[in-house]
Design a protein around this nucleic acid. Structure first.
Lengths: 193, 193
DNA sequence: GGATGGGCCTAACGGGCGTTTGGGTCGGGC
DNA sequence: GCCCGACCCAAACGCCCGTTAGGCCCATCC
């Protein structure tokens, strides 16, 4: 083990993700956070500039992960149903692999300063756009029903993959792949007998 | 107009719902809240006992609305697909008619004291149970596919109706009925052509 | 017309907040 | 032997928090 411990700054970010997700950003004090790492509140400022910097970094990191997961799928030559299945898998995997920062991302982005706030709303539009494109492709190529409302369909898909942050438990009985396959199968084929 | 204005206490609850949903519970100060109503921070305590009392009341009110909307459906002699459509409509209507308190309900319940916190988790299990029962009924009567995973199906339905609080805008182009019909149609029949 | 009580104000309480400052300790490189 | 940088502490700064106390205004009612 050449480098046994993570850099202090990353440890701080990890603890901050956990505390922010459990208690919320404003309900977590810098002294709470420092206590988790066995130090005093003021000592944190040797490693970070401000509390908000932590929130910004957690949120940015999460949105980057979503981007990377989905954007590489954009131009792939796949049928829309297969692409939907894969996109849902990747989306849920990001949530499942980063439960804490994903929770912070969904809950605390409103507390960002205007610039960072704007970036998040922009991100949100991008993801919306990705799924709307996907649905449009499916309708055009005949894979999906022609009478679909593109916007509503995208909302339904987003609901399924985003809401997972409230109930999914890593280490439980289902892997992200299994969750995505089940959701995609139900969405694609419907619940009716 | 015999009683032109709402009781002061209700005005406070309304403003608190709006501010808590926009800024979050901990980021809203009692002086902020009082300012919305044109008074001083301390004056609020002529009408309420504490800040947490406001949160408890908002959350309780929201969960009562969900309960009333869904529980009256429980014993109704309807086929599962019709019942699902109606349940989703009622669920989304509660969200749409109470965007502020629904948002507070989904975001801020973690900040409740242990007793109130426990009541919310209990409520959550109840709603989960309602939708699982509904799916089970559908499978048993042959309305739904026999290979459905009851738990996952309930999660998918809950995702659709709950996530609406993030995107639905009252006064927009879609009524709760239309949203519910579209979602139910897609869920029941699937997206494939 | 005097008392009552609802509704609000000002002022203050103790305490916690995010952050800054100055200094101490300790291990590795010259 | 000395310095340097990383790391942390103790203490304090000014500010804002939720909440309380005491008093003023004024419509209503006996």
């Amino acid at each position: 083990m050449t480098d046994t411990a993570k850099p202090r700054r990353e440890q701080i970010l990890d603890s901050a993700s956990r505390l922010f997700s459990e208690r919320g950003y404003h309900a977590t004090s810098m002294r709470d956070l420092a206590g988790e790492l066995g130090m005093q509140g003021g000592s944190l400022y040797a490693h970070i500039a401000s509390k908000e910097e932590l929130l910004i970094e957690i949120v940015n990191q999460a949105s980057r992960q979503f981007d990377e997961a989905l954007f590489t799928l954009r131009g792939e030559p796949m049928r829309a149903d297969e692409k939907l299945r894969e996109a849902m898998f990747r989306h849920i995997r990001v949530v499942a692999d980063n439960m804490d920062s994903a929770t912070v991302f969904f809950h605390e982005w409103k507390h960002l300063s205007p610039e960072a706030y704007g970036r998040v709303t922009g991100w949100r539009d991008t993801i919306d756009g990705f799924y709307r494109e996907l649905v449009t492709q499916g309708v055009q190529e005949g894979t999906f029903r022609a009478d679909l409302d593109v916007k509503m369909t995208a909302y339904l898909i987003l609901s399924a993959v985003n809401w997972a942050y409230t109930w999914y438990r890593p280490g439980g009985s289902m892997s992200p792949r299994e969750v995505a396959d089940q959701f995609a199968e139900m969405l694609l084929s419907g619940l009716r007998a």
